[in-house]
Design a protein around this nucleic acid. Structure first.
Length: 330
DNA sequence: TAGGCCATCTGGTCCT
DNA sequence: AGGACCAGATGGCCTA
């Protein structure tokens, strides 16, 4: 039986969503952009100048010498050059659109995806790098992550606004965590599976509790709890001590990633798309490693939250939350 | 209004 | 020759 390849488990739209997608030429007709139009106008003008420049002046306003006169380029050739340039521009546009689509796919699988307030390109890449690193570290450790360490890794090198955004996301979803005596973060409350797939009883909009629906911080205890778990233990295969140093070496096919999205990230998106784009790791996390955890919530979110950008946390007295706040606001 | 972000154009380089 | 890729330049939009 062949080993499952990493990409096999990615949601198809994240792997090959653009494979067969042709950027329709109509998306932006050749030279249709304002910039293109001005450039074209410039080109036309320059061509006119060339045509009219037979006995005109050079760029310094001096009369052109006969010997310095440019060799006249056939108009057909000029046209051809112009057409080729336009085609090249169209290809370049298409290429950049593809790049942006890929980036958008990336946005959807890193923590804190919001349609309304997108991460910038550079922040998306940074967050993705940190995210991969944090997951790798978690896999290496072979145990549940320390929440604080995880989010600190996640926010390394991010701008303050992005850090705040991530903080908002994680604080909200951190209510799903409760710390044990070792300071480890354990999952509690709504399991990731339900968070991704299941409707939300008691929520008219079908919005997950705390996802801006004003759940009032009540935990949903109606659903049977499927504990968050690791899918297996992994050998440590990274040598670099910090994500800032270098990327970890690739040593062969890796197992699918654990889906931390279901725990950490807010998918500020309609549920269908959310499920489509972010569930890829869940199917590998079906073997419970612990029994059900308590329903205690470490965090509550006030009902007047305007998540994720205007987040108010009610239970300021909780220790872990204080830690998080301190970390995020330093 | 300055600064950040972005889309687009453009010319150069490399590869097929 | 032509396409892919890249980086610099430019202008538009948005926000603090």
């Amino acid at each position: 039986m062949p080993e499952p390849r990493f990409a096999d488990n990615f949601p198809p739209e994240c792997v090959a969503e653009n494979k067969n997608r042709k950027h329709e030429p109509a998306r932006k007709e050749l030279g249709a952009s304002p910039s293109a139009r001005t450039k074209e106008a410039q080109e036309e003008n320059s061509e006119k100048e060339e045509d009219e420049g037979e006995d005109g002046q050079d760029e310094n306003g001096l009369p052109k010498r006969k010997g310095a006169r440019k060799k006249k380029v056939p108009k057909a050739r000029l046209e051809r050059v112009k057409v080729r340039r336009q085609e090249a521009n169209a290809r370049e546009r298409s290429r950049m659109h593809g790049l942006n689509d890929a980036l958008e796919s990336l946005r959807k699988v890193v923590p804190c995806y919001s349609k309304t307030q997108k991460l910038s390109k550079i922040e998306t890449l940074r967050l993705a790098k940190n995210y991969i690193w944090a997951l790798s570290e978690t896999l290496s450790a072979g145990k549940r992550p320390d929440l604080l360490a995880f989010v600190q890794t996640l926010c390394k090198g991010l701008s303050q606004p992005t850090t705040n955004l991530v903080a908002g996301c994680l604080q909200l979803n951190a209510r799903n965590f409760l710390t044990d005596h070792n300071g480890e973060a354990s999952f509690s409350g709504r399991p990731p599976y339900d968070a991704v797939y299941a409707p939300y009883p008691g929520s008219e909009s079908g919005t997950p509790t705390g996802h801006g629906s004003g759940g009032g911080g009540t935990m949903d205890s109606a659903k049977p709890f499927r504990p968050y778990s690791y899918c297996g233990s992994y050998e440590s295969f990274y040598e670099n001590p910090s994500p800032e140093c270098a990327s970890p070496p690739f040593e062969g096919p890796l197992s699918p990633p654990i889906n931390f999205n279901g725990i950490f990230s807010l998918k500020h998106e309609d549920p269908v798309e959310y499920g489509k784009s972010c569930h890829y790791g869940m199917r590998y996390c079906t073997v419970p490693s612990r029994g059900s955890l308590g329903q205690n919530s470490m965090f509550t979110v006030s009902s007047d939250s305007h998540f994720p950008y205007d987040l108010h946390v009610r239970s300021q007295s909780y220790a872990l939350q204080d830690e998080l706040n301190a970390a995020f606001h330093n």
